[in-house]
């Protein structure tokens, strides 16, 4: 189990690396107007700012205690949901048919989240009905009230 301190340090390291990437990618951009500080100026000083702040933060957290454990309750559920969202994006961009897929997405998530309640025919029926209701509402709203091509 990771302590909050370790997670903090990891985030500081990641942000510093990101900032270094920022500095690297804007270096060499030209200055074309007289008086201008250049395209790279702001990102560069800001990224240096992040690096310095991360260093301060890292020192502070090294000096303080390890802190409590960084717990993520129901981690599998969080990860699975993120995976479901990503999967939905992929399949929506590949196959279209947003409303059909949205219905399936809703129904699966409802059922998954409500598994602890106990699986039953009634539960599935309710889930399907709510998913259908939301999908139908979106369909009507975005095709007739305001036009959004999904």
């Amino acid at each position: 189990m990771l302590s909050t301190r370790v997670v903090n340090l990891l985030v500081y390291a990641a942000l510093s690396a990101l900032s270094a990437l920022v500095i690297w990618s804007v270096s060499g951009l030209p200055v074309t107007l007289p008086g201008d500080v250049g395209t790279h100026f702001f990102p560069t000083i800001l990224a240096w700012g992040v690096i310095i702040l991360c260093a301060i933060g890292a020192i502070r957290s090294l000096l303080s205690g390890a802190g409590e454990a960084f717990r993520i309750d129901y981690l599998p559920r969080v990860l699975l949901t993120i995976g479901m969202i990503a999967g939905f994006f992929v399949s929506w961009s590949q196959f279209g048919a947003f409303y059909l897929q949205a219905f399936v997405f809703l129904f699966v998530l409802f059922t998954y989240y409500r598994l602890p309640v106990g699986l039953s025919a009634k539960l599935i029926g309710v889930n399907a009905a709510v998913a259908l209701g939301i999908t139908a509402f979106c369909y009507v709203a975005f095709n007739f009230l305001i036009y959004v091509d999904l």
């Binding site: 804007v26 951009l29 030209p30 107007l33 201008d36 790279h40």
Partner: peptide, 8 residues
């Protein structure tokens, strides 16, 4: 805006 260059 000032150089027309894409950035980040």
């Amino acid at each position: 805006l000032f150089t027309g260059m894409p950035r980040l």
